[in-house]
């Protein structure tokens, strides 16, 4: 359900970028979604489809790359990428770990189209 809040935040960013590059259309939005971000990609896409109407991203496609969950062991320093619990170091078995990634939802980059001669369109 909180995908709607996230997409509202995404459109704040898109509006800001549209102002910076005006006049422009956003043609693609590339997101990186952490495996354990708690975000459902399908719901994110549905919310995006609803939100984009009437904005500079109306024609934009959304791509979502899933980022694996990743942590470093504080005991042996090894990195692990477990798909599911136990979330313990795969090398030494310690549960004393520092989370490194796979929890966030990041707007990585946008593709935009601008008019060649500003002010003529």
């Amino acid at each position: 359900m909180h995908e709607l809040s996230l997409v509202a935040g995404l459109f704040d960013i898109l509006e800001e970028k549209t102002r910076e590059h005006q006049p422009c259309r956003i043609t693609a939005v590339h997101l990186k979604v952490g495996r354990l971000s708690g975000v459902v990609p399908d719901l994110l896409e549905s919310a995006f489809t609803v939100y984009k109407k009437g904005t500079s991203a109306e024609e934009a496609v959304l791509t979502i790359e899933i980022v694996p969950f990743r942590f470093r062991c504080r005991k042996c320093g090894g990195e692990s990428f477990p798909e599911e619990p136990p979330f313990a170091c795969t090398a030494c078995g310690s549960g004393d770990v520092e989370l490194l990634g796979g929890m966030d939802v990041v707007v990585e980059r946008l593709e935009i189209e601008t008019d060649d001669a500003p002010g003529t369109s």
Partner: peptide
């Protein structure tokens, strides 16, 4: 018309 890539790298939960 010019096509451009814009790097953003912003966490959607950043404001929160």
């Amino acid at each position: 018309m010019t096509k451009k890539e814009v790097l953003v790298l912003k966490d959607l939960l950043g404001t929160n």
